[in-house]
Simulated scan of single mutants.
Amino acid sequence: MGWRQTADGRTVVEHDWSTDARSGRAIQEVLAQHVDTTCRLPDSIRRIAGVDIGFEDDGATTRAAIVVMDPADLSVQDSVLVREPTRMPYVPGLLSFREIPAALVALDRLSTLPDLLMVDGHGIAHPRRLGVATHLGLACGLPTIGVAKKRLTGQYDAVPDTRLAWTPLTHRSETIGAVLRSRVRVKPIFISPGHRIDLGTAIDWTTRTLTRYRLPETTRAADRLASDRDRRRAAAARN
């Protein structure tokens, strides 16, 4: 495992992605010490992106979708969908080792890198503080936010049934995220810093990208691209 400086000044970690569970946990313990939860966003955010990663072929293929948007109006500026062989079997708590290699390939295929990644998954709201959003941030050197549909770890009080209300998500006396009510009478979502961002900024950007749906437009668009939902709906409408 080592660190590398990219041509555009990003500091990224490099390590073996095809590893066993014990080695993976050891890598997580080391990487967790390098997570930065202070805001490192540029003064001007010109591009934000949603990232969705899933699996096909009974897990043999990893699918990564990235949709880049203009933060002013959430219009799509770029998108990419890649499929890569899955390098590691599923191990609880080590999902990022399965998911991130394909996401890095997708990032490399974008015409321009975004300033901020919003990832469908957890950031530091992870037992070892290294969910997929955090791990991806360390691997690509970009600020990341975790936007998850379900809790992985931690405790929280009931969230008021008011849009944009939230309560802290805590674990071992540490605040690791926020449980946010994105829609009234709809289950909340779980927001956590990934890397190079703080919780307040993570909440702010999540609320900025919410429309009338439960999920922010960034990760919702990436999920839609990954599932090819729009094409299938159009085909169904023609039949």
Rank of each mutant, 00 (worst) to 15 (best):
L199K: 02
H15A: 08
E14R: 14
P71L: 01
P127Y: 01
A49E: 03
G93F: 05
L169M: 07
H126N: 05
L199C: 06
P168A: 04
A236Q: 15
L74V: 12
S111G: 14
L41R: 12
R47T: 02
R212L: 07
D70M: 08
W3T: 08
E14P: 05
E29A: 15
E56I: 10
V91D: 04
I203E: 00
E84A: 15
A148Y: 00
T37Y: 04
A139P: 01
A72C: 13
L117P: 00
D120M: 11
R163K: 15
G2F: 05
T206W: 09
W205K: 02
R40T: 13
R224H: 13
G93A: 06
A60V: 08
T167R: 05
R208N: 02
G123H: 01
C140P: 04
R214S: 03
T62Y: 07
T6I: 10
M1H: 11
V132I: 11
P42N: 15
R238A: 13
I66E: 05
I191A: 01
R63F: 09
G123W: 00
A65L: 10
R181Q: 12
R128M: 09
A236V: 14
I66R: 05
D36M: 08
R128L: 11
P71Y: 02
M88V: 00
I176G: 00
R208Y: 08
F190A: 02
G50I: 00
R109P: 13
P160R: 05
D223S: 10
S182M: 09
S23C: 12
W17M: 06
Q33S: 11
G93I: 06
R183L: 13
T218W: 04
L169I: 12
R40V: 08
A226K: 05
V68E: 00
H34S: 12
G9W: 15
G24E: 00
P127R: 05
